[in-house]
């Protein structure tokens, strides 16, 4: 296989590591030295060979270990995967999208053979082979959304389109930046974004919703979102916040570079053909600060962004208490030199 998969953990001993290659292809989210919310949607077109934007669904060195982590989280809390009764068809749409795209983009890792509604799926990295009948739930070990998202990195939400709004009516959520699917399932676009500060006043959600309601099949879009996470913990859920929250107090000026991670979500949106729902994959990438600063432009820029971020956003993103330490650490890597436009390393 072309990708060497890591054997690593995202909890307890946190053996997660990024290779040199993974660091260079990290989706750095800041195209300039400051940050404020914006709609920032762009077509999800293939970009730069080797980058996380090249394939429809990026598969990287963390794939196998991330899927193991998902199974662990689901076993502890099955409510992380839920689908309201009317969303099964959208689940099949999602299964088709992921299988078709992965088989096309990674033929050495995934195969999909179709004869009418008789499908044969082979997932080599996870050692899975499944023959099933498309649109017949009884031929899969679980529902179609759960089946395929146990084999795909990142969280997934399925959004029903009705009453000129989008309703989060199904999802697989185990790598989230502190939001609860169990609480938010059934909410519309404005409701599930309600806790986000400032963006409502800026009109961000009105414009984003208007845009997304017009999303066409075959023309997916993407955007990046970000936050900061102590330890490479994929499951920063509110459900477990009473367990992981305390890790924020383990940061010192000595270990801040290895403890703190920039957490970036590559969010993509696809119109689905049968259900007319939207698929909303939210893929999480983590990078520790000491790895990030090996790209000099990123070190300089992240320092400036975090230093100047409005207090309300630093609070919402959950790192206000440690911001002085993070900014202090990053300042060593900011010589004041000008940074080039755009997200790519120089």
């Amino acid at each position: 296989m072309t990708i060497q998969f890591n054997d690593e953990t995202f909890y307890d001993d946190f053996t997660f590591r990024n290779s040199e290659r993974a660091i260079r292809r990290f989706p750095f989210p800041f195209h300039e030295d400051s940050y404020m919310y914006s709609v920032n949607l762009e077509p999800h077109l293939s970009l730069r060979p080797g980058s996380v934007y090249e394939k429809t669904f990026d598969v990287d060195e963390h794939y196998v270990s991330e899927m193991r982590d998902r199974a662990r989280v689901l076993s502890d809390d099955p409510l992380r995967c839920q689908s309201l009764p009317h969303m099964t068809l959208a689940g099949w749409d999602l299964l088709e999208l992921i299988m078709v795209e992965k088989a096309k983009d990674y033929p050495d890792l995934f195969e999909l053979h179709r004869a009418g509604d008789r499908w044969h799926w082979i997932n080599k990295p996870l050692g899975i082979e499944q023959k099933f009948t498309f649109l017949d739930e009884t031929t899969l070990p679980c529902g179609p959304m759960e089946y395929i998202t146990r084999q795909a990195q990142g969280d997934f939400a399925l959004l029903d389109h009705r009453d000129d709004n989008l309703w989060m009516d199904a999802g697989m959520v185990t790598t989230q930046a502190d939001w609860s699917l169990d609480f938010d399932i059934g909410m519309n676009f404005y409701e599930w974004h309600a806790p986000v500060p400032k963006a409502h006043e800026l009109g961000v959600f009105q414009r984003a919703l208007k845009f997304l309601l017009n999303l066409q099949q075959g023309a997916p879009v993407r955007r990046l979102n970000w936050t900061m996470t102590v330890n490479p913990l994929l499951d920063t859920s509110p459900e477990n916040y009473h367990k992981w929250g305390v890790q924020k107090t383990s940061v010192t000026s000595e270990n801040v570079g290895s403890k703190y991670h920039l957490r970036v979500e590559l969010q993509t949106l696809f119109r689905l053909p049968r259900s007319n729902a939207l698929a909303f994959p939210i893929r999480c990438y983590l990078i520790r600060l000491e790895d990030l600063v090996t790209v000099p432009k990123w070190g300089r820029r992240l320092h400036r962004v975090l230093r100047d971020l409005p207090e309300e956003l630093a609070t919402y993103k959950g790192f206000i208490r440690n911001r002085p330490m993070i900014v202090g650490y990053l300042s060593q890597f900011d010589d004041g030199a000008e940074t080039s436009p755009g997200i790519w390393p120089d």
């Binding site: 609480f183 409701e191 916040y241 009473h242």
Partner: peptide, 13 residues
């Protein structure tokens, strides 16, 4: 933050 499905507000530690 309120869920109509649960008819409840959210409590966090």
């Amino acid at each position: 933050h309120y869920s109509r499905r649960l008819a409840a507000f959210q409590g966090v530690r």
